[in-house]
Design a protein around this nucleic acid. Structure first.
Length: 291
DNA sequence: GCCCAGGGAATCG
DNA sequence: CGATTCCATGGG
């Protein structure tokens, strides 16, 4: 892991020496559901704080993406509070600024097909999101499409989350304690209603504990999460990849199954071993836009 | 009306 | 075991 370099500037955190980052590819590739384009960048909650994220090139101009080797900056403006140093580090970790993607992609690209997938969206980063939010949003994601997943996540945030400015944070487990199965059905969550109720209950009573999940091996963590009704291998893999840094977790949705059969009929290439989850994001994006 | 969506549980052979 | 089938909802 790399050091995260940053400067604190009253209401902003400016991360320096950033390369290889595309905001749209990162925030709209289906790993996060509550970030939206805003004022030349993206806006959403990181560590419960409403953040405005922008990228600047070497001349300080706002840009949607920067390439490998470009000496760019990434600015996170906290919209309603002032940042501390420890928050800056956590936010940098959320944005995956502590992982050397240039080196990872060089390794992946030794495989020809991976090289093509990477070329299609080289600026994707796998975010390190909040555990509970990731668990709930990916239970919502099952047999569902991305626009409607976003809509349902927004709906539950507006009704139960903390209001901040003109938007709302995703609710905490405690804020979701009062929601009944019937409430979820009334909010059009359909057959996922009982799954959501079970997940919230198990987090609240400690049967599912974030610290335990993060202490377990990949296999044990996946099995542990699957004690929740409505959490199977795919949802568990998403939680482990997008909120627990289990980079060998490899979520297999309908797109990936299609893509793997077509692009990698002989199975997972050796070049991505140990980091299948990160490689998966390039393949997912490539498959969704070209197959 | 049909099909599908970042799946999983229940059921069946 | 693996393979169907059903589950709610909304968009195309």
């Amino acid at each position: 892991m790399n050091n995260i370099q940053f400067v604190l500037n009253t209401d902003k955190i400016i991360y320096t020496s950033v390369g290889d980052y595309n905001l749209a590819d990162t925030f709209e590739c289906g790993q996060a559901f509550r970030f939206d384009p805003y004022n030349g960048g993206y806006r959403g909650f990181i560590e419960k704080q409403l953040c405005h994220i922008t990228l600047q090139n070497e001349n300080g101009q706002n840009v949607p993406a920067v390439k490998d080797g470009e000496n760019a900056t990434l600015t996170v403006q906290l919209m309603h509070t002032l940042p501390t140093e420890s928050e800056a580090i956590k936010i940098g970790q959320f944005l995956s600024l502590d992982t050397d993607y240039t080196a990872l992609k060089k390794q992946f690209a030794e495989n020809e097909i991976m090289a093509k997938a990477i070329e299609f969206a080289p600026g994707i980063r796998v975010l390190n999101q909040d555990f509970f939010e990731t668990l709930i949003t990916f239970i919502i994601s099952q047999n569902n499409n991305i626009p409607r997943i976003k809509q349902l996540c927004d709906r539950i945030s507006e009704k139960y989350g903390t209001k901040v400015g003109d938007t709302c944070a995703f609710p905490t487990a405690e804020q979701m304690r009062c929601i009944t199965e019937q409430d979820y059905k009334d909010m059009k969550f359909g057959f996922r209603a009982k799954y959501l109720a079970d997940a919230v209950a198990k987090v609240l009573n400690g049967e599912v504990d974030e610290a335990v999940v993060k202490s377990l091996s990949y296999e044990d963590a996946q099995e542990y999460l699957m004690q929740i009704k409505g959490v199977g291998p795919k949802v568990a893999d998403c939680v482990l990849l997008f909120s627990c840094r289990q980079y060998r977790s490899f979520p297999k949705d309908v797109w990936i199954k299609k893509a793997m059969a077509q692009l990698f009929p002989d199975g997972i290439p050796k070049e991505i071993e140990g980091y299948e989850g990160i490689a998966q994001q390039y393949i997912f994006h490539y498959a969704r836009h070209t197959l």
